[in-house]
Simulated assay, not measured.
Amino acid sequence: MNPKITSLLANLNDQLSFINLETDNESTLCERAIEVILKSIDVLKKVVTKTKFKTESEEIFFFKEIKPQFTSKLIYYNTLYKIEMKKPNGGNRIVKKYYNNELIKLKAFFDNELEFYKYYRSGSIYLDHKYFLRSKFDIKMSLDSYYFEADISFSTSHDFKVAKILANDLIQLYLENQLVVIENKDNGEKSQRKPNLKMIWTSQKVALIELLYGLHTEGVFNNGAADLKDIAEYFEHIFEIDLGQYRRTFLEIRTRKADRVKFLTSLNKGLLKRMDDTDDGM
């Protein structure tokens, strides 16, 4: 892949991670995210229009694997913004019904695109030359009207559908998580089998905050869709600890003159040493 595109995608992911770290309000987060995504897509378009693909395989790879990574983010945040802006005021029952209706909309897209969904999810490639090459559309494939309005120098008949599939996965996860939150509020604290031992965080609080930010940045919870605030509250709950003004603590971590990720570095060194010691004992 073109190194400019690789750098552009990495930079976009970094910017979105930063926005998620620094923004609690859902609508503000979406607005900021959409702004940076649109700028990245504009740059991506300029790179692609100035660069000719060497082979058809290279072009297929870009429109099947690369461009949807940009476009899906735009679809996700734009849809999320609309969902939250249209969310009705009222009790949990009303909001729950609203979120369930949004899930029904996602299922409708899935049902309408079932054939292509199966093709894409199965990793098939036999129709890639029709789906992911520019100006190679087949009218018999029931194309959406948006394709004929799109810039054909930067679009194929199905790259947007791939992006839609990727975005819908995250939207579904978001909606399901919101329903779980409502359900837990209705039922009180979720009943579940509790472990015999209670775990208490006995290291420094700043170390837990460093770990919190590291895990959120890596996107290890809910396919990267989990909000920093939700993760922080979860940590506070399971460890029965008050993280206080953890955002301010993170700013202090960033201004460290020596090792800014002291705790994560220590974890890395400790685990590697444990592996080495285990290897030596074998």
Rank of each mutant, 00 (worst) to 15 (best):
N177C: 03
K198S: 06
I231R: 09
S135F: 09
V43C: 04
I182C: 01
F239C: 00
T265M: 13
L267F: 05
N184K: 07
F18Y: 11
S191W: 03
K229R: 09
T51I: 03
I139W: 01
Q204L: 10
A167L: 02
Y174M: 09
I209F: 01
L127H: 05
T217G: 15
A167S: 13
K107V: 00
F148L: 01
S203D: 15
R32C: 12
T71R: 04
S142L: 08
E210M: 08
S153M: 11
D279Q: 11
I171W: 06
S153P: 04
Q245A: 15
N222P: 12
L175H: 05
F132T: 08
L175V: 12
S153Y: 10
E149P: 05
A10M: 08
T23C: 12
F109Y: 07
Y213L: 14
F221L: 11
H158K: 01
K86M: 10
I200P: 08
F110W: 06
K185V: 05
L74W: 01
E115T: 10
L179D: 06
A10R: 05
K87S: 13
D277A: 11
F70M: 07
A225F: 00
D186Q: 15
K97R: 13
D151V: 00
D276K: 13
D279T: 12
V36Q: 01
K107Q: 15
V48N: 07
I241Q: 11
T255I: 09
S135D: 13
K164E: 14
F235D: 09
K39V: 09
M85F: 05
F235V: 02
A232D: 02
F53V: 12
D24K: 06
G281N: 14
G91E: 13
P68L: 10
I182V: 08
I125M: 10
G219I: 05
L272E: 13
L16T: 13
N11W: 02
E84V: 09
L243G: 02
E218D: 13
S145R: 08
V206Y: 02
G244N: 05
L179K: 08
Y213V: 15
K105T: 13
E35V: 09
V206F: 05
M1Q: 13
T71Y: 02
L215P: 02
K45G: 03
Y76E: 02
Y213W: 03
N2P: 09
F148R: 04
N196P: 04
E115Y: 06
L133S: 03
L127V: 04
I171L: 12
T71C: 05
K136L: 03
D42T: 07
T255A: 13
D128K: 00
E113T: 04
N100C: 08
Q204A: 15
I231M: 14
K107Y: 07
K64T: 03
T249W: 04
L16G: 04
L106N: 10
S155F: 04
Y234F: 08
H216E: 15
A33M: 05
T265A: 15
L267K: 01
S203K: 11
K50W: 00
A232G: 10
S135H: 12
L197C: 03
V162P: 00
L208H: 12
T265L: 11
L29D: 00
D169R: 12
V43D: 14
V181P: 01
M275F: 13
N112E: 07
L170M: 07
E149W: 00
E210K: 04
E31F: 07
E31L: 08
Y119A: 06
Y119P: 05
E218A: 14
P68W: 00
G219Q: 03
I19S: 02
T71A: 14
F53H: 06
S57Y: 06
